[in-house]
């Protein structure tokens, strides 16, 4: 322990890490050994140990994205042993702990792979495509000031709860990474559902779904084939229901909107 598990023995591990100097460089898997890894460590702390080690040896540390390390900012994004965010269900990489591994294990660590997420360096990827999709319509167009009283728009609790569940997406990109088709539809549908369910989202309901889907397609993500890998690997449990809702929104918007383009 620090806590209660005095039997937890330090582990020695072999890491196979994707190294790639920059976006245009060729990448490759490089093998490292890490020693005396405590089972209480988080996965990223284990990588911290590796990086301190590399720095001391005068080698370049492994670049990876992370920040809050409490599973909410959505920065961390490692493909660990063939799975987005590793083997534990409903968990971001930063909340994955080494007690899920055993002494002597070999762990393969790769970046998210999708053409829409180019590699910055090593394990860090560029997810700005997600931002551009939100910019295409993932908002309610209200300026600051002049909003009516918060209680003027009653929202049934079940609706508010469903909208909240969709809104908890952390935009980590695990859905894209896990999907055979590198499709972003779970991410996109989470935002579309949130706003389609809420009364505040009704005004721009049709244009929103049309524009966001158009941007999603433009970014080069694949199309959903309803496999469900995204939802299975989503660390915050965004449901496939959202994709169905988005499809419905899209079909009805295309059929009834005044947009001739």
């Amino acid at each position: 322990m620090a806590g209660s598990n005095p039997n937890a023995k330090p582990m020695n591990l072999t890491l196979k890490v994707w190294r790639q100097k920059n976006r245009n460089a060729e990448g490759q898997i490089v093998e490292y050994q890490v020693k005396d890894i405590s089972p209480e460590m988080s996965f990223l702390e284990m990588l911290d140990v590796l990086n301190e080690d590399l720095l001391h040896k005068g080698e370049e540390p492994v670049a990876f994205d992370h920040d809050c390390r409490e599973g909410i900012c959505g920065s961390c994004n490692l493909f660990i042993n063939g799975r987005a965010h590793g083997p534990e269900k409903g968990t971001t990489t930063c909340q994955l702990h080494m007690r899920k591994f055993s002494d002597g294990d070999t762990i393969t660590i790769e970046p998210w792979r999708a053409n829409a997420f180019p590699v910055n360096r090593d394990l860090s990827v560029d997810r700005s495509a997600f931002d551009r999709i939100i910019q295409a319509g993932g908002y309610v167009s209200v300026n600051t000031g002049g909003a009516p009283d918060g209680n003027e728009i009653p929202i049934p609790k079940p609706v508010a709860d469903r909208a909240f569940e969709a809104a908890t997406c952390i935009a980590c990109g695990a859905c894209v990474a896990a999907c055979k088709n590198a499709s972003a539809m779970l991410f996109v549908s989470a935002k579309i559902s949130q706003l389609a369910l809420l009364p505040q989202g009704q005004v721009e309901r049709k244009t929103r779904v049309e524009n966001m889907i158009a941007q999603m397609d433009k970014e080069g993500f694949g199309a959903c084939t309803n496999i469900g890998q995204c939802a299975a690997e989503c660390p915050v449990g965004i449901s496939l229901e959202n994709i169905a809702l988005m499809n419905r929104e899209f079909i009805s918007a295309k059929a009834t909107s005044n947009n001739l383009a």
């Binding site: 908002y139 909003a147 728009i153 009653p154 049934p156 508010a160 505040q200």
Partner: peptide
């Protein structure tokens, strides 16, 4: 008080009572 109004208008899904109010 204005902050809450603004956020609600943006679609922030605050917790609700069964009657639909915040």
């Amino acid at each position: 008080v204005n902050i809450i109004d603004q956020c609600v208008a943006q679609g922030v899904p605050f917790a609700r009572e069964y009657g639909g109010l915040l």
